[in-house]
């Protein structure tokens, strides 16, 4: 047992030089470095890439994915997975478009969409906990169910013409220097901040980590395992509904073929953000960075102009692989 010897103050520089971040932050730092590196390379290669507005647009274009990744982080931290979020997004866009078409006030529309998302998430959580069904299977069922429900509402795309919606969609806040940041991006960042607080500083959040560490232990420690486990799927459902609203704002439409495969993007972002798929380790900020890395790859391709868009997928695949292997190496010591 090593004693904690209080270090003698030897100047700030020496302390910075000696500073080594705790192991658990390494993956997030890695993702951050990757993001900065990619942006740096982009800035050197392409004119206008390093413009702050590119970064701000990145946030705006990926706001819905950021929110989805936040919900997914909760689930993956417990060692689970949620495959239903993509379909849940599509369902949310359709419910929003349809209820607006029927003339419901915007507030009511938002409430209905959020409730439906939470309902789907909670139902899957209950199945997973009380019937001991693999999260993969339960949420796969949820994925098909939600996608099927979309077609019940409408087979065709429904445009959103509501003025409040368009106002929010195109609204932005102006930052010093003439840059602007869309409301939806601001909203996504707020969600990230709230989630980070919940995970780090509430009993619920710490129980999420404990569940990922060892579920039997958490149970024997007397922690509220059932509530927490159902809770993370409810949160993921809520985030999917929020993501759906953001996506409806982004596309101004509701369509059953929206967000096909988006759950996989969310999972990829979470993994690239350094969260362990086995649970117990990871941060929401990492997932935010993961989404930004994915977004940067796309920005790269659109700036280059000569690259096929398939390179996005290939790069994501390689990155996920690299990160999973790196985590293995790190956790194995």
């Amino acid at each position: 047992m090593s004693a904690q010897v209080p270090t003698i103050e030897t100047g700030v520089i020496a302390r910075i030089a000696r500073f080594s971040p705790p192991r658990r932050y390494l993956p997030v730092i890695g993702t951050f470095a990757l993001f900065i590196g990619m942006f740096g390379i982009g800035g050197i290669r392409y004119e206008g890439f390093a413009d702050p507005q590119v970064f701000l647009t990145l946030l705006l274009d990926n706001a819905f994915l950021i929110v989805l990744a936040v919900g997914m982080t909760f689930v993956i931290l417990t060692g689970g997975i949620d495959l239903s979020v993509g379909s849940n997004v599509a369902l949310s866009t359709l419910i929003a478009a349809r209820t607006l078409e029927l003339g419901l006030p915007v507030v009511a529309v938002i409430v209905v969409v959020l409730l439906s998302g939470i309902l789907l998430g909670t139902a899957m959580g209950l199945l997973i906990h009380y019937f001991d069904i693999q999260p993969f299977i339960a949420t796969l069922a949820g994925m098909f169910l939600a996608r099927g429900l979309c077609y019940l509402i409408s087979v065709d795309s429904i445009p959103i013409k509501d003025e409040t919606f368009s106002a929010i969609a195109f609204g932005s806040i102006t930052l010093p220097g003439g840059y602007y940041l869309g409301w939806t991006a601001v909203f996504a960042l707020v969600i990230v901040a709230v989630a980070a607080y919940v995970l780090a500083s509430t009993r619920f959040g710490r129980t999420v980590y404990a569940l990922g560490g060892s579920e039997p232990s958490a149970l024997l420690m007397g922690l509220p395992v059932a509530a927490t486990k159902v809770g993370v799927y409810a949160i993921s459902g809520l985030c999917a509904a929020l993501g759906g609203l953001l996506f409806a704002l982004y596309t101004l439409s509701g369509y059953s073929l929206h967000a096909v495969g988006m759950e996989l993007d969310a999972i990829a972002a979470v993994v690239i953000g350094g969260t362990l798929l086995t649970g117990g380790r990871g941060f929401v900020v990492g997932s935010l960075l993961g989404v930004l890395v994915l977004g940067t790859i796309q920005t790269f391709i659109s700036f280059d102009g000569t690259l096929s868009s398939w390179w996005t997928r290939i790069t994501i695949g390689v990155l996920v692989l690299v990160f999973v292997v790196a985590q293995r190496v790190l956790t194995r010591r």
Binding site: A210, G213, S217, A218, M221, L223
Partner: peptide, 17 residues
């Protein structure tokens, strides 16, 4: 029966922080 991924203090006070 503790969780290895949290700190010693968290393990001692989990649920009673």
């Amino acid at each position: 029966n503790l969780v290895p991924n949290l700190t010693v203090a968290e393990n001692m006070l989990l649920g009673r922080e």
